[in-house]
């Protein structure tokens, strides 16, 4: 029998979201969901993107609109398997990335399996956003379920400032 060892490649990095996505994330920090409206066709993108995919029009930061954190489930999937083999513990990660960054670490935000990822179309948006749906009444989750954003207590300007969406009816 040859010896087997466990290793990992852990590469911390940061990326710059730019003015459009950055403004959306800045809004989340204030517990507000925003979208961007296309100058040409009027479509509202949540989450916002740099170009209108229909008109290829550049989106403008001036055209940001606040949207209500309520919407409809347009599709969902139940995740039963961890992506990372094992979820890393906080202790494990803290040996590998800087302690100052640990609480902002997205890997720690993944819920225990099983969890539900859904395409959610907010009422005032024309596009869907991807997020978690959590709650006690998950058996009632179906296409068209009404959901509402639940915020984390502390927000940092990240998509996971929305803890998840909860089923409202």
């Amino acid at each position: 029998m040859t010896k087997i060892s466990n290793w990992d490649i852990t590469v911390p990095y940061q990326w710059t979201p730019g003015p459009v996505l950055g403004t959306f994330l800045g809004g989340l920090r204030e517990k507000t969901i925003t979208g961007v409206k296309c100058n040409s066709c009027g479509k509202v993108y949540v989450p916002p993107q740099d170009l209108c995919r229909d008109c290829l029009e550049d989106m403008q930061v001036e055209n940001f609109v606040e949207v209500k954190p309520e919407g409809t489930v347009e599709g969902f999937v139940k995740i039963r398997q961890n992506f990372f083999g094992e979820r890393p513990s906080k202790e494990y990660l803290s040996e590998r990335i800087s302690p100052a960054d640990i609480d902002q670490h997205p890997l720690l935000w993944f819920p225990e399996v099983p969890y539900v990822v859904a395409m959610i179309k907010l009422d005032e948006a024309d596009t869907c956003m991807l997020h978690l749906v959590k709650g006690a009444d998950m058996d009632n989750l179906k296409m068209g379920s009404r959901v509402r954003a639940a915020w984390k207590e502390e927000t940092i300007g990240h998509i996971m400032d929305i803890d998840s969406f909860k089923i409202t009816e």
Binding site: G22, T23, G26, P106
Partner: peptide
């Protein structure tokens, strides 16, 4: 605007 998004490959 948020100026950075942190992530880690694991």
């Amino acid at each position: 605007p948020a100026s950075r998004v942190m992530h880690t490959w694991y």
